[in-house]
Computed example of a mutant assay.
Amino acid sequence: MTAAPADLIVDQPAVTDGASLWRLAKDSETLDLNSSYSYLLWCRDFAGTSAVARGADGEPVGFVTGYVRPERPRTLLVWQVAVDAAYRGHGIAARLLDGLTARLAAERGITDVETTITPGNTASERLFTSFAARHGARLEREVLFPAELFPDGPHDPEVLYRIGPLTDATPH
């Protein structure tokens, strides 16, 4: 893996980034695509628990969306991660995830991360497995939503990845 471009800027999304996040999710061909409206709302209501990577032109080339679980205020649930195809292989997803969790550990005291991954999504499996290792955290997996719970046709089960506690917000 090569290093992320030096001119990459990681910050919080703005409402004006909603359309770009929708396009990145659509172009990923692996994420469940939500409505464009939901990405606009996400950039408004959950910008503080999400991150975007911007290229030299200021346009988003990657994102992580997440929220702090209401019943577990020290747990960040990562909803989606996407990186533009032209920027993949440079560690941008890891940089986004590390930066977001470091920020939220400092601002909100998060100690744990959760996400769901469908079996066979090796890119996400590697991202979160290596994240746990970098942060000296335990990783547990269990099926959260079995396939039969999804009402809209065939859907793979969603496997919950529980990572924590993070021993250090800074990766090793």
Rank of each mutant, 00 (worst) to 15 (best):
2 T>L: 12
5 P>N: 13
7 D>T: 07
12 Q>I: 06
13 P>R: 12
13 P>D: 13
14 A>V: 07
16 T>M: 12
18 G>D: 00
19 A>N: 07
20 S>M: 03
21 L>M: 11
23 R>G: 00
23 R>I: 00
24 L>M: 11
25 A>K: 04
25 A>R: 05
27 D>H: 03
31 L>T: 02
37 Y>L: 15
39 Y>V: 06
40 L>Y: 03
44 R>F: 04
44 R>E: 00
46 F>E: 05
47 A>F: 09
49 T>D: 14
53 A>H: 00
53 A>T: 00
53 A>E: 03
57 D>R: 10
57 D>G: 08
59 E>S: 07
61 V>M: 03
66 G>S: 10
67 Y>P: 01
67 Y>L: 05
71 E>I: 05
71 E>P: 04
72 R>L: 15
73 P>K: 11
75 T>V: 10
76 L>Y: 05
76 L>H: 04
78 V>E: 01
79 W>N: 09
79 W>P: 05
80 Q>G: 03
81 V>M: 13
82 A>V: 05
83 V>H: 00
86 A>T: 04
92 I>V: 05
93 A>M: 02
96 L>D: 03
102 A>M: 02
103 R>C: 00
103 R>Q: 02
110 I>L: 01
112 D>N: 08
113 V>K: 05
114 E>W: 11
114 E>F: 12
114 E>M: 08
115 T>P: 07
118 T>M: 12
119 P>K: 13
120 G>S: 09
122 T>D: 13
122 T>A: 10
123 A>T: 12
124 S>N: 10
127 L>A: 09
131 F>T: 07
136 G>K: 11
142 E>N: 05
145 F>L: 14
146 P>T: 07
147 A>F: 03
149 L>C: 14
152 D>N: 13
153 G>K: 09
154 P>W: 08
156 D>P: 03
159 V>G: 10
160 L>H: 12
161 Y>H: 09
161 Y>M: 15
161 Y>T: 13
164 G>K: 11
165 P>V: 06
